[in-house]
């Protein structure tokens, strides 16, 4: 227990001392927030700022998960920092848990800041169901950090890691609705986006803020995220390597796929469910509040 606390304390201190952490966790996403907000002219209607939030929060989660967890793990291994830990009696678990908890503490101020700006400047009412929203965001963070960790553990060096992470990052942010609104996508891309893990974040966050849904109403998404996180952590621990000299077996790279399986199953399930109702549509259209028309999915033809 002592080592968990000590690791969290030091992780948090180190994070605050790194300019890149401040930049990528706060400045960079905030910049997107203001760009999107002005593109949508979000001052005119508080509903519009919800769309912006549903983009920039997932953007932050995906970046924190893939780059924050993934690249850092590779870096520490490459520099020989993990090697020094290997000499001590600790296991990988406290290292992973500490980095998870630290990431949460680093990420939450960003959420508070974007919600506050949305409230005070863009006149968005405070989300009634904010505990649900925070739990959902936290869960997303854990799931994406697990994914980042697994990707990191399959990369043999920095360059490989960089390529692999970008390979996941860009489709994730462009095909999920986190940067380009879904309604401009052709039907085929809309369908594909159902298989992109980040789109679950976009949808969940939008629903929770716009229709004040509780996390219970999104239980299916929650299950997918929990399963992905659990698989990710398990695989991450299994593939954890302390030294760059320990190369990963070729076949082991397929473990990345294991983390994506829950999302894949969920995508297929939805596809089957909405078959005949082309193009595919999000399975839950309940809680249709007044804001729902604006949530980005309403423009798609509906099965009726």
């Amino acid at each position: 227990m002592k080592s968990y606390l000590a690791l969290m304390k030091i992780d948090l201190k180190l994070a605050m001392r790194m300019r890149s952490v401040i930049f990528f966790n706060y400045l960079f996403p905030l910049m997107f927030f203001f760009i999107f907000a002005s593109l949508y002219r979000a001052r005119q209607d508080p509903k519009l700022i919800i769309r912006v939030l549903a983009m920039v929060i997932p953007l932050g989660i995906v970046g924190n998960g893939l780059f924050g967890a993934g690249m850092r793990a590779i870096q520490e291994r490459e520099l020989g920092v993990l090697r020094r830990y290997k000499v001590t009696p600790i296991t990988p678990l406290p290292l992973l848990v500490a980095s998870m908890v630290t990431a949460w503490f680093v990420f939450m101020p960003y959420i508070l800041v974007v919600l506050s700006i949305s409230h005070f400047y863009y006149h968005l009412p405070w989300p009634e169901n904010w505990p649900s929203l925070l739990v959902f965001i936290s869960l997303g963070l854990v799931a994406f950090r697990s994914l980042g960790m697994v990707i990191a553990s399959t990369a043999n060096n920095m360059q490989e890691g960089q390529i692999l992470i970008q390979l996941f990052y860009f489709p994730m942010i462009f095909l999920s609705g986190a940067t380009i609104p879904m309604e401009v996508f052709p039907p085929i891309l809309q369908r594909m986006s159902q298989f992109v893990p980040a789109s679950y974040l976009v949808k969940g966050i939008k629903d929770m803020i716009s229709s004040n849904q509780s996390i219970g109403a999104e239980w299916e998404l929650v299950v997918v995220l929990i399963v992905a996180a659990a698989v990710g952590l398990t695989v991450g621990l299994k593939l954890f390597r302390w030294e760059k000299e320990e190369k990963i077996r070729k076949g082991a790279k397929l473990w990345v796929a294991a983390v994506l399986v829950p999302f894949l199953i969920w995508g297929i399930y939805n596809y089957v469910k909405s078959k005949g109702a082309a193009p595919a549509q999000w399975p839950q259209q309940k809680g249709t509040g007044s804001l729902h028309r604006d949530n980005g999915y309403a423009h798609r033809p509906r099965a009726s």
Partner: peptide, 15 residues
Amino acid sequence: CLQATNLPAKIRVQE
């Protein structure tokens, strides 16, 4: 005391 090792760049000695 390992032959090749490192610590995080921004950790203080006492920490």
